[in-house]
Design a protein around this nucleic acid. Structure first.
Lengths: 152, 152
DNA sequence: TGCAATCCGGACCTTGATGGTCCGAATTGC
DNA sequence: GCAATTCGGACCATCAAGGTCCGGATTGCA
């Protein structure tokens, strides 16, 4: 399905929420859970991963919480995806691990996925989280009569 | 991981192999399995899906087999991915299914993934299977000194 | 100094999709 | 009529993702 994990989706939601109160203030995991409507342990898990990647900063103790390390406009989407889902690699045989593919000797596309990965990586680098949050996103109900579906 | 399924990878391999003998001749599933080194039922499954998508054409009976419906240069990669993995949609809440997201009312990125999907779709549309097969792919061993264990 | 709030790091389990296999039915050429 | 082959579906095993939970460490406050 060429889908990225739900955690990545949650991460974007959490980051945008975190941006709303980044004026020096921090937000706690339960607070973010309440603001986003997501389960508290899930939000905590997302925040931990994001903190590990350096996208957010956690402060322990009472009055602790999380805050952004940089504005969302300076945070390309690919950073979040890489943090949550790992590096962009459509196929396993594209990295430097040799010898793991049993049909290596007969594989005609060996190493040929690189430009594809590069194309996607480039497409994703030009989009920031701020672009996703965009203008105070109040998407008007997109006309339920029209069959809008994003087929490839 | 933003990965596509192995079946898609197999499909590209099978298609390129099929291109080698598309001069009017057809290739059987067992024949392709032998040529690619993949398991026979797996190849058959891939071919069935590709045939259903119209990318290859199957002919039954004795002397039957599969053949390409068009040259690989006219077959964009996105067609194969769509056939094998379904339509490109990074997140579930991007399609027309409304009301399935429990945090729909509070989600700040609602409908914001569309440009991302579009960017990826555009990046993938510009690459054909022929580009992946590329020049008679004999990738020069990039690591001659590394422990090369050819598993197969 | 003790207590409460909060993050941190990991283990754990469930669920769903994926990968892979197999079988019977239909079709075609000899 | 027979053999070869695709077609269509069902079936099962495996694995990663999604989600939950717990103990420990850190910080601020009374």
């Amino acid at each position: 399905m060429l889908r990225l994990s739900k955690l990545t989706d949650y991460a974007v939601v959490v980051l945008t929420r975190l941006d709303d109160a980044t004026d020096g203030g921090v937000l706690t995991a339960p607070g973010l859970a309440g603001a986003t409507g997501l389960a508290e342990p899930t939000v905590a898990k997302v925040l931990k991963i994001l903190a590990h990647a350096g996208l957010v900063e956690g402060r322990r103790g009472a009055l602790g919480g999380y805050r952004l390390t940089r504005p969302l406009a300076d945070m390309p989407l690919i950073d979040v995806i890489t943090a949550m889902d790992g590096p962009i690699a459509l196929t396993a045989c594209v990295d430097n691990s040799f010898g793991v593919c049993e049909s290596e000797s007969t594989c005609p596309v060996r190493g040929r996925w690189d430009p594809v990965n590069e194309a996607i990586r480039r497409a994703l680098s030009g989009i920031s989280i701020a672009d996703l949050a965009g203008p105070p996103a109040v998407v008007p109900h997109p006309e339920p009569a029209s069959p809008v579906f994003v087929a490839g």
